[in-house]
């Protein structure tokens, strides 16, 4: 059969790399064929999600931030300073987390989706017009964030003026100065050329961009056990591949940025400088518990336990 797989990024970005590896594995180990649909070719994020729910698409990659409108618990990944920045710790967490592998799947199932995996896409960094060393530097800074209540709350707590803006307008708005900041992983800042219109990149370590791959549930349940195994193996292979692919990707992307624009400053905040940002995390966590759905508390507690386990291992 031909299976269709849509994702939210371009072919050469992290989600695209994952999808290509998945396709390669499936096609090598079965008679099925995978067609890939990158960002925008079948509509916006919410559209491809609905198409996966209705079975037009068999697979979809959507980040929990967008899924939050359907599954409020998924927004937990926006609580700042929850996830560690250490790549190995992260990988082990995503692989073994009970929250991800046991608590989330039923929530996705309620929406007609089989959660196949979640994986990290890289440390989220701030790009700004002025240098940032603490929340004071974000005062009055119009900062573009996705329209997610928790992100908005985070940046408000950081002292910025969170400003919603459709993605297509971000580059222009940074250039003319309507907004003075935005956040994204390094590879994305590089591939979307965001660095051309910004002067400072600050690593505050507040988050790691997370994304999830799902299948349409009826489709998945209707598959033979053999096919389900092929899919599970392909997902595992793609997961290992993408973790490996990302090793050093952040540094590489930052180097490319530095090379293309030598005047840019890239600053990693010290633990001390991060502390005032970290102090705001509690308020966002509270907000999550309020809007994160019935299982918000359970998910948050389990995630924290899983993270501890990952740190110990």
């Amino acid at each position: 059969d031909t299976w269709r797989y849509a994702f939210e990024e371009a072919m050469d970005e992290v989600q695209g790399k994952f999808a290509q590896k998945f396709k390669e594995e499936i096609e090598a180990n079965s008679d099925h064929e995978i067609q890939l649909f990158p960002f925008g070719t079948l509509g916006e994020s919410a559209d491809t999600m609905e198409q996966a729910q209705s079975g037009i698409l068999q697979f979809v990659d959507q980040s929990p931030g967008f899924t939050g409108a359907l599954i409020p618990e998924a927004q937990v990944f926006f609580v700042p300073y929850l996830l560690p920045q250490d790549e190995e710790q992260l990988a082990s967490f995503f692989k073994n987390s009970k929250a991800i592998n046991e608590l989330f799947p039923p929530l996705y199932a309620e929406q007609g989706l089989e959660l196949l995996t979640m994986f990290p896409e890289g440390e989220v960094m701030m790009t700004t017009a002025e240098a940032v060393t603490g929340p004071d530097d974000l005062d009055e800074v119009k900062f573009r964030v996705m329209t997610n209540p928790l992100l908005v709350e985070s940046y408000r707590a950081f002292g910025a003026t969170p400003t919603p803006l459709p993605w297509g307008e971000v580059y222009g708005a940074l250039q003319t100065g309507i907004i003075q900041g935005q956040e994204n992983p390094a590879f994305f800042i590089e591939s979307t050329k965001m660095y051309e219109v910004t002067d400072h990149i600050t690593r505050t370590g507040h988050n790691n961009f997370t994304t999830a791959v799902m299948a349409n549930k009826d489709f998945y349940d209707g598959l033979s056990e053999e096919d389900q195994t092929v899919i599970a193996d392909a997902i595992d292979a793609a997961f290992d591949y993408i973790i490996d692919y990302q090793k050093g990707l952040t540094e590489e992307s930052l180097e490319k940025i530095k090379e293309a624009k030598p005047s840019i400053t890239i600053t990693t905040l010290s633990d001390e400088e991060r502390q005032p940002f970290m102090d705001t995390a509690d308020s966002v966590e509270q907000e999550f518990l309020e809007i994160g759905g019935d299982q918000a508390q359970e998910i948050l507690d389990q995630l924290k336990a899983d993270l501890e386990a990952a740190a110990d291992s």
Binding site: G40, G168, Y171, G172, T176, T192, K193, E196
Partner: peptide
């Protein structure tokens, strides 16, 4: 400039938008 078409092209092809 600004041209939304060029921005999209730049992103999809990895070309400098400036």
């Amino acid at each position: 400039p600004p041209s939304i078409g060029m921005i999209i092209y730049g992103v999809v092809s990895g070309t400098s938008i400036s």
